[in-house]
Write a protein that binds this DNA or RNA. Sequence first.
DNA 1: AGCAATAATTGTTAACGTCAATAGTTGTTG
DNA 2: CAACAACTATTGACGTTAACAATTATTGCT
Lengths: 173, 173
Amino acid sequence: MLESPRRTEPREPAITRQHVTNPSPIDADEPWMRGLHADTGYLLYRLGLRSGQLFNTFLQESGLRLRHYAVLRFLAGSDGALQRELSTRLGYDPSAIVGLVDDLEKLGFAERRPSPDDRRSRIVVLTTEGRAFLRDTDEAGLRVTNDLLGPLDPAEREALHGLLLRIAGDGLG
Amino acid sequence: MLESPRRTEPREPAITRQHVTNPSPIDADEPWMRGLHADTGYLLYRLGLRSGQLFNTFLQESGLRLRHYAVLRFLAGSDGALQRELSTRLGYDPSAIVGLVDDLEKLGFAERRPSPDDRRSRIVVLTTEGRAFLRDTDEAGLRVTNDLLGPLDPAEREALHGLLLRIAGDGLG
DNA sequence: AGCAATAATTGTTAACGTCAATAGTTGTTG
DNA sequence: CAACAACTATTGACGTTAACAATTATTGCT
C-alpha cells in the first residue's frame, strides 16, 4: 500500500461557483479523450460534475445550493420527514442536515415541528412558500437539463433518462 | 432575490471517502422519488456523485484521489503535457495542479521535465511506473463501472455510453 | 431504576477552492 | 534594443466546507 500523498483521506469536492478555469470542451475524438472517457463510470462522474455546476449556477440566484434543493425535493414528496431520515436517504451527515434545515427555515421554506411520539425527533415539513419556490426552480432545472442534453434529440433524451433511472433504481442508490 | 442563507457563494463538494451515511437505495417507485428524479440533469448529478464515490473508494487504497487519476489519465493519452494544459483541460486551478503533480512525482508516477522551447513551462510526463499503476487501476475502474451499471445488459451499457459521450462531446465540456 | 441506544446538535479539525502576489521568462512594440 | 505587457509555475493567505467526535436530551429495554 502506498503512502498517502498528503497524509489525508481522499476526498473529492466537486462543484464550484463558476469554475473560474472552465474545462475546455470535451472532444471524444482526441486521443487523450479515448483513454479518459473510455470508462462509463468515470464519464458519468465527469458529467455529473458538470450537471451539478449548471444546477448550482441556476440555484445560486436564490442563495441556495444543490443540497438544499435535494432536501426540499425530498420534503415535497413526503409531507414531513425526520432529519435522520433526510440524512440516510440523501446521504448527508446528520450534522450537515442541521445547517441545511436551519437555512431553509430561515428562508421560510421549511419548518421544524415537534414529533408527537418522540420528543427527540423533529419533523421537517415544507411550507407553502417552500412549495412555491420549488415550483419556480423546477423551471430552472428544466433549462439546465436542456442545456446539458443539447445534442440529444427527444427520443434519445427519453432513452437516456430511462437508462439512468434503471441504474438509480438498483441497490446502489 | 433572496438572501444567501450562509452569506456565502454556493458550492457543492461531493465525493467523500466512504460516505459514512450512505444513501439508501433509490427506489424510483417511491412518491418522493418521482419528483426528485424526474429531472434528467439532477439524476445525472446524483449518479455522478455515486460513481465518484465508488471510484474514490477503489482509488483510496493507493492513496490517490480522483483528481490524481484524472491527471494520470490525461498524461497517458498525450505523452507530455504542460501544467497549464492540465489546468484548462481538466478544469482545475493552476495552483491545484502544482500539488497534484507534486504528489504524483513523489510517488514516482510522473516527472517534470524542462520544456526545450520555453523555459517557463514544465512538461509533465508519465513514468513507466505511472503507466503500470494506471493499468492496474483501470481494472478497478472496470469493477466500479460494473457495480454501477449492474442492472443494464451489455447492449444497454453500450447505448448509455454512447449517449453520455454525445453529451460530453458537445460544447459544454 | 439503571443502562444502552437514538435524534439532534455543537464544536473541532483538516482539506479545499479561490484569489492575490511573486519570480522567472517570453514576446512585442515604440 | 530597451521597456513593457503577457504568460508559466508557484507560493501564500483567506474563507468555506465536510468529516468526525463529543454532548444533550430522550427513549426503550430488562
